[in-house]
Structures are given as structure tokens and as C-alpha cells.
Design a protein around this nucleic acid. Structure first.
Length: 563
DNA sequence: ATGGGCCCTG
DNA sequence: CAGGGCCCAT
């Protein structure tokens, strides 16, 4: 399409979809379309600077309303801090007597004041910044459209490119009937993302009564086009920004910024730059690494040495004043979304259109946004006057039905969760895969996944334990799994392919203990016993730790796929 | 009977 | 990773 003189390249993400936007179908002219109103008539229309200015002011006020900076929220994101995990309490039982022994999980956060997430350069702010940039671009587009609008009304100037080839009949009969015969420079090409984004929006039909018919048509066209443009921009921004924000939250909890510190990643080591999936700036200074487990010996089966406070990642402490209920991911999303969109905050996301009868608490599954699908649906929300309907529409459509199948994203998520829990109960899985419609099949598949994860894990550890034995390691206590060790590399590439996340230090401690246990058992010749691994399993099964609440975030699974 | 876990296999 | 067999606990 023709670029206005002042055209500036849009943000990269926006380019492809946005450049396809045109004024069609309402303004796209088709050569064969009957033209009932001549240019002369347009010329005579009193619609001139006054009206244009009013129109421009109105639309720009809408845009500016959207680009206002969000009202600052409490910095403490407190995305986790789920109080009282539903871990089963486990007494002291034998492995045989209890297939899934559990260490009693003390109430989290007792006396621990969560430092909250750093506020500076938060993903929200970064997202808003990106949103503003793109809205800035939108404003330019608006000016461009208005220029074209003026040109249409003033055929005297403005060279009219010969469109035609790419034009197509519009659906809007009334608009088509009143189309000037000039070809539209912005006529979109066949197949371009155009008309399906348009929707007859009764909410936009107001206050055109005073305008002559042609002006009204053009006014409607402009309004509709702007609505479509806004919708697409919001879709585009959110599909690109929101997952990144979610990714940031994951980063915060999985690796509390540790990637930025050198100690875990000596020069030349494997870690990929974190910026890969987080281009939106840095978070504040990272909190100290999660406290380490007491070394080796104190990790006996009794598990008594687990100091609830010592073991807890500071991030896992509930943020003061931020209490998360059981079905909070929706609230989180709504709030963050509100911040992203600059609306201050929504107290809670809108009620879903209908709640599945079997699910008292609606699941806000938001499988990967499909803007086209979103666009095609009508916005069921009553929109306030002047409110950017696209955003509200997007939000209202966000609550979607849960999926009935596990996806590769879910698999990746499960693998990352393995860093925290090796023996998740089905209840736990249910609470962390909120976007999945659980069935017996789904449950067993997830259970099976973790079973496979464990299998790989134990095989690897055993392999390295035997290797250490062959290499003449004398003291089991000397064995330690660090981020440099081969064992870690093997595990990391399996569960964290791409090295997208900072493996929690706690996992290293668990792996170290597993390694030592295998080492000692093999050295003692216990592997002659066919069930010699069971005592080790028993020990390890007690070392599950809390999984950060961010993993519950809807869309988490989808986002993991792209990182 | 059902569910969960391990083991083996492909 | 999934399937199937087996075992064990509820």
C-alpha cells in the first residue's frame, strides 16, 4: 500500500499483520461496483475541516485513553505464595506401606516476609511500553487514514492510484453502493487479512445523524476500520507481550534472576542469554538464591532437618497483602492484563459466558490466542461509550473452554515442574494444569509422564554414581551435582531443553543426594538386591518441594513452547 | 475394582 | 514417550 510521506516503520511484530490492514471492505472500491454518488456530491458536502477535526479528536482521544500509563500497582507481584498447599500429610511409613510417601509440607511463608518482585522494569511496565509504542504507530496510521479520508473528499488533488486488481466486492452493500469510483490505494490484496476482521458494530452507529449520507458512510467506514485496526493491534500486542510477561514471571520463580549472576554460569558455559525469551528489560535485583539444603547427611529419610524456613525460596513466601485463592490465575491474568492495557486494573476478569456445569470454578484456559478466531466473534460485553471495544472483547473471549488433550507445551511444562516435584499427586497435577480438562486418561498420561521422568532421572544418576565409583571416588559426601557437572547437563538437556530456565538450586541438592545414595548403595553392594532402589526412591520422594504458583498461570504451557 | 508405581519393551 | 504387565494399597 502507499505509504504516507511521514510513514515510519512499525514495530517489527506488527509489520506483517498490520500492513495488511486496509479500509476494505467498506472503503475498498471495486470497479464494477455501482456508484450512486459522484465526487461532486462529496465535494458539496459540508463535511469539512470542522467535522474532520471533531472526528479526529474523538478517535485520538480514544487512542490516547488506551495509551495512558497504567496505574502503578503494588510492586509485590506475589504471584505465588499459595498458602497451604494441598500436599498430603505423610507419616513415617515404609515404602511398601505407602506407595507415595510424602514429607509433610509445612505451611509456607511462616514469618517470612516476601520481598515481592522487583518493581523496576517489571514485565508489566515493559509490556506497557511496547503497547505504547505500537499505539503510537497506530496513531500514525490513524493520521494516514485521515489523510486518505480527506483525499477521498477532495478529488482535486491526491493522485489516485489505479487500484482494482486487488480490490474485491465488499459485503457492506450500502457502503459499496456509495463508493466513489476512485480506486483505493489501500485496497487489499486477495487473501489479505481484511473483512473478517470487520464487524458490524451497532455500538458504533451513534451520532451520525447529522451527517449527509456519504459522509455517514465514510464515517462508518472509518469507525469500523479503526475498530478493526484497534482490535488487531491489541491482539498483536497482547499475543506478543503478554506471553513475554508470563515468561518473565516464570523466570522470576524458576530462577530468581540467578542467570544474571556469574557464579552459576562461568564464562563460556552453556547458559543461553536469558534475553532470548525476555527482551523487555531486566527485573530488579534478584533476591538471594534459595537457601540450600543442609548438605548430605542431614537429608536422611527422617527428613527432620528440613527447616521450613531455611528451605524456602524467598519468592515462595506469600507476599504481604496478596492472598491468592484457589482459583486465582484468572484474577492474576485479569489484573496483569489490566495493567498491560493501561486500564489500571480490573478487579477481576469478566464472568465467562457460561460455566461448564461440571466445573464450579470456571477455568480460564486461554490456549494460544488466535486473533482471527477472536475477531470473528461478537463482543458480548456491553461497552462503555468510547471504550476501546477490541480490548474488552479480547478479554471477554479469553475465558475459553479447557483443552481435552495434553499438548507439547504441557509436556514442557511438566518437565520443568519435575525440577520441583518428582512425585506429584494427581491432585497436584490437577491444580497446576488448569487449562486441561482432566479425565482419567489425561491424569494417567500426566502420571505416566512423571513416571518416565523419574525413570530417566534415576537412570542417569545411577550411571554417574557407578562412574564415580569406578573413578575411585572414596567419599560419598564429596559427590555433588553442580551446574557444571555432566550429570546436570544430562538432566538439564532432558527436562530443560534450550536451557530456558534457571534450574532451582534445590533440584541440585536433591540430585546430589540421589547421587550419593546411589553411590553408597552400589558401593555397599546392595544392587544385588532386586529391589535395592526402593529405599532410594523412598528418600527422594520426600524431597518434593513446592511448585511456584506461576506454573498455574493460564497460558503458561503455551508460552513455554515458544521460549 | 481402581489407582498408582515400577519395570520392560518398542 | 507410550503400552502393557505386574505388584501393591485403598
Amino acid at each position: 500500500w502507499c505509504s504516507p510521506p511521514s510513514y515510519r516503520s512499525p514495530p517489527a511484530q506488527l509489520c506483517a499483520p498490520f500492513l495488511l490492514i486496509s479500509l476494505s471492505p467498506c472503503l475498498a472500491r471495486t470497479p464494477e461496483a455501482p456508484v450512486s454518488l459522484g465526487i461532486g456530491e462529496i465535494d458539496r458536502e459540508p463535511l469539512s475541516d470542522e467535522h474532520l477535526r471533531a472526528k479526529r479528536a474523538r478517535v485520538e482521544s480514544i487512542i490516547q485513553g488506551m495509551s495512558l500509563p497504567p496505574t502503578p500497582q503494588t510492586p509485590g507481584t506475589g504471584m505465588e505464595g499459595g498458602v497451604g498447599q494441598d500436599r498430603e500429610k505423610g507419616g513415617e511409613m515404609s515404602w511398601e506401606g505407602r506407595r507415595k510417601p510424602r514429607v509433610p509440607q509445612p505451611q509456607r511463608g511462616a514469618g517470612v516476609t516476601g520481598r515481592g518482585a522487583p518493581s523496576g522494569g517489571s514485565p508489566h511496565a515493559a509490556g506497557c511500553q511496547q503497547l505504547k509504542e505500537q499505539l503510537c504507530f497506530l496513531e500514525q496510521q490513524l493520521r494516514w487514514l485521515q489523510e486518505r479520508f480527506s483525499q477521498v473528499c477532495d478529488p482535486g488533488d491526491a493522485a489516485q492510484p489505479q487500484g482494482g486488481a486487488g480490490d474485491r466486492p465488499g459485503r457492506d452493500g450500502a457502503a459499496a453502493a456509495h463508493r466513489p469510483h476512485k480506486a483505493a490505494p489501500w485496497g487489499n490484496s486477495p487473501g489479505a487479512d481484511g473483512p473478517e476482521g470487520m464487524q458490524e458494530d451497532e455500538g458504533m452507529q451513534e451520532d451520525t445523524g447529522g451527517l449527509p449520507s456519504v459522509a455517514r458512510v465514510l464515517s462508518q467506514a472509518l469507525k469500523q476500520e479503526l475498530a478493526g485496526v484497534t482490535s488487531r493491534v491489541v491482539d498483536s500486542v497482547l499475543t506478543s507481550v503478554w506471553p513475554k510477561a508470563a515468561s518473565h514471571l516464570l523466570q522470576q520463580h524458576l530462577g530468581p534472576g540467578a542467570a544474571a549472576r556469574g557464579e552459576h554460569f562461568p564464562a563460556g558455559k552453556c547458559r543461553k542469554p536469558l534475553a532470548k525469551s525476555s527482551p523487555v528489560g531486566t527485573l530488579g535485583s534478584p533476591p538471594p538464591e534459595a537457601a540450600s539444603l543442609p548438605s548430605g547427611h542431614s537429608l536422611g529419610p527422617q527428613g527432620s532437618s528440613f527447616s521450613p524456613t531455611a528451605l524456602r525460596n524467598p519468592h515462595q513466601a506469600p507476599a504481604v497483602g496478596y492472598t491468592l485463592g484457589s482459583a486465582v490465575p484468572s484474577a492474576q491474568e485479569g489484573r496483569l492484563l489490566g495493567q498491560l492495557l493501561g486500564y489500571g486494573h480490573w478487579g477481576s476478569p469478566p464472568a465467562p459466558q457460561r460455566c461448564p456445569p461440571e466445573a464450579p470454578d470456571p477455568h480460564w484456559g486461554a490456549p494460544r490466542l488466535r486473533p482471527s478466531a477472536v475477531r470473528q466473534q461478537r463482543c458480548p460485553l456491553p461497552l462503555g461509550p468510547g471504550e476501546p471495544g477490541a480490548a474488552a472483547c479480547w478479554l471477554s473471549l479469553t475465558p475459553r473452554r479447557t483443552q481435552e488433550a495434553l499438548t507439547p507445551g504441557h509436556l514442557k511444562k511438566a518437565k520443568l515442574m519435575f525440577f520441583f516435584t518428582r512425585y506429584p499427586s494427581s491432585a497436584l497435577l490437577r491444580s497446576y494444569f488448569l487449562d486441561v480438562q482432566f479425565s482419567r486418561c489425561i491424569t494417567s498420561q500426566l502420571i505416566k509422564w512423571f513416571s518416565n521422568f523419574r525413570e530417566f532421572y534415576y537412570i542417569q544418576v545411577e550411571k554417574f554414581a557407578r562412574q564415580a565409583l569406578l573413578e575411585g571416588v572414596a567419599d560419598a559426601g564429596a559427590l555433588r551435582v553442580s551446574r557444571d557437572s555432566e550429570l546436570f547437563r544430562a538432566l538439564n538437556t532432558h527436562y530443560n531443553k534450550g536451557n530456558d530456565f534457571q534450574v532451582p538450586g534445590r533440584f541440585l541438592e536433591v540430585a546430589s543426594l540421589t547421587l550419593r545414595e546411589f553411590f553408597s548403595a552400589v558401593r555397599a553392594g546392595k544392587d544385588a538386591d532386586p529391589s535395592w532402589k526402593k529405599p532410594i526412591y523412598k528418600i527422594i520422594s520426600k524431597l518434593d518441594s513446592h511448585i511456584p504458583e506461576v506454573f498455574k498461570a493460564v497460558g503458561c504451557s503455551q508460552e513455554l513452547l515458544r521460549s
